[in-house]
Computed example of a mutant assay.
Amino acid sequence: MSNKCYVAEVSTLPLIMTEGEVATNGKTADADKPQDMDSKIIRQIEYYFGDYNLPRDKFLQEEIKNDDGWISLETMTKFKRLASLSTDSSVHENNEKIRRAPSHPLPIFNDEVKEETMKRTIYCKGFPKDGSVSLDDLLEYFKQYGPYETVLMRHFFDKESKKQGFKGSVLVVFPTEEKAKEFKEVKEVKFKGTYLIRKWHEDYVEEKKKEIEERKARKEARKKKEEKEGEDNKEEDATEIESPKGIFIHFSGLKEGSEATREDIKEALGDIADQCAWIDFSRGMTKGYLRFKEEDYNKQVMEKLEGKLKVKDMDSELRLVEGEEEEEQFKKMKEARSKARANAGRKRKSGGRGGHFPNKKRKF
């Protein structure tokens, strides 16, 4: 018998089998339930050869052209995640090889496939960003809402530390749009006590596009305005700044001396955070103010959060800022902007950061 093995699909999920074995409801006829590590290894290989990953994986696409679709398990274990789950002795012996079952043709990866996949994908945010959550944790967690096709952790790259970080959000790809809709319509979804924000992936992408376009438009408008008004008009009196109504919310009830930061408060706002322009708060304080970008947006926030905001393990109370209190907040905002403009003007006149040290030589 050949030392090659193949990926055969059962229902909508692939199953790893060696040639000559018989599939019985997702198990081999003479095999016991695989150990946890074996299950993880099989699941990872199934992902590599599955409908979602293989059409998108350029490296595997090139490899399967060389040997009628077969790839050695020695090559597979060089993949970072599979390498972390396995050892040479436990995964590839006797030069075994693996491939996707020819009876299940590979989907053509085109715009139609991208669009169809997006329609059954849910964006999910609210997971810890501190490194305490692994992909295995997430795969296990989403089993209760399955079956799912895959779970993709979203990462960012920190240029300073040159390390990847977890954004706290994932994309969950379900086998059908109906299954995705079922998950989307679950009333409450929590992970370790934290409510998860769920959106259709398509809606999330459109929101981000809109944000980028609006940010670009504001930047261009600001640039044109500065060019038109000239250098002197940049330092206009703070009293001339427009004062839209309904943009402030007061929060209180945090523990005195707590380690909560502005970043923690912004994270607690969830998808509302994108509309928050400023948080007037310092570590150790029990209360502060939220300032939003759009007029009368504070009422929408109050309605959505039902007057409460959970920051870490603390419950804070929210209330609208109106009347004299609102005028006082506008005054503080204008003073801060005026001070920032004045500082910027001094830097320009002194030649920027190096202007205070005219005799200091620059190093190149």
Rank of each mutant, 00 (worst) to 15 (best):
E294S: 10
S258G: 15
K97H: 11
G323S: 03
K181L: 13
L13E: 11
C124Q: 02
H250D: 10
Q44C: 14
I45N: 01
R218A: 13
G307R: 05
H104Q: 07
F79D: 15
T117W: 09
N94I: 11
E235C: 14
H356C: 08
M302G: 04
V321M: 01
G323W: 00
R154T: 14
G69H: 04
I122N: 04
Q164I: 00
K293G: 08
K114G: 01
S89F: 14
L171A: 11
K223S: 14
R319I: 03
G352F: 01
A260V: 15
A180I: 03
Y47A: 05
E206T: 14
S282I: 08
K114N: 08
K40T: 08
T117N: 13
L82W: 10
A340N: 07
G26E: 11
R99I: 10
E229W: 04
D68R: 08
F191I: 06
E21W: 06
A8M: 00
R43C: 13
L135S: 03
T87R: 08
L82Y: 10
R341V: 06
L152K: 08
P358Q: 02
E227I: 04
S11K: 09
S90N: 15
H356P: 02
F166M: 03
K245W: 01
E263W: 03
K360Y: 07
F157C: 02
R353C: 07
D130W: 02
M17H: 09
K287V: 00
C5T: 06
R341S: 10
I197C: 09
K80H: 15
L85M: 10
S243A: 10
G230Q: 06
V7M: 10
E149F: 06
Y47D: 05
R353Q: 10
P107H: 00
T117E: 15
E325Q: 05
R218D: 15
M1N: 10
D130V: 06
T261M: 11
S258W: 08
L290N: 00
E242Y: 01
Y204A: 13
E214H: 10
P14Q: 02
D315R: 04
Y289H: 05
A344Q: 09
F142N: 04
E295W: 02
L171C: 11
K224F: 03
N359Q: 07
M118F: 06
G288Q: 00
V311F: 08
K334G: 05
E220I: 12
R341G: 07
E188F: 10
L196P: 05
T117G: 03
E214A: 14
R346W: 11
T194L: 03
K209M: 14
V7A: 01
C124G: 06
N25S: 15
K33W: 09
E96M: 15
E306C: 12
F156V: 10
R283I: 11
H201Q: 12
K58Y: 04
R198C: 13
E327D: 12
V10F: 09
E235D: 14
E259S: 15
D88W: 09
K125L: 07
Y195N: 12
F183V: 06
H155T: 13
R346T: 13
T239P: 00
E63M: 14
Y141I: 04
K209Q: 15
R218C: 12
K210Y: 13
N110M: 00
I45H: 01
G126Q: 02
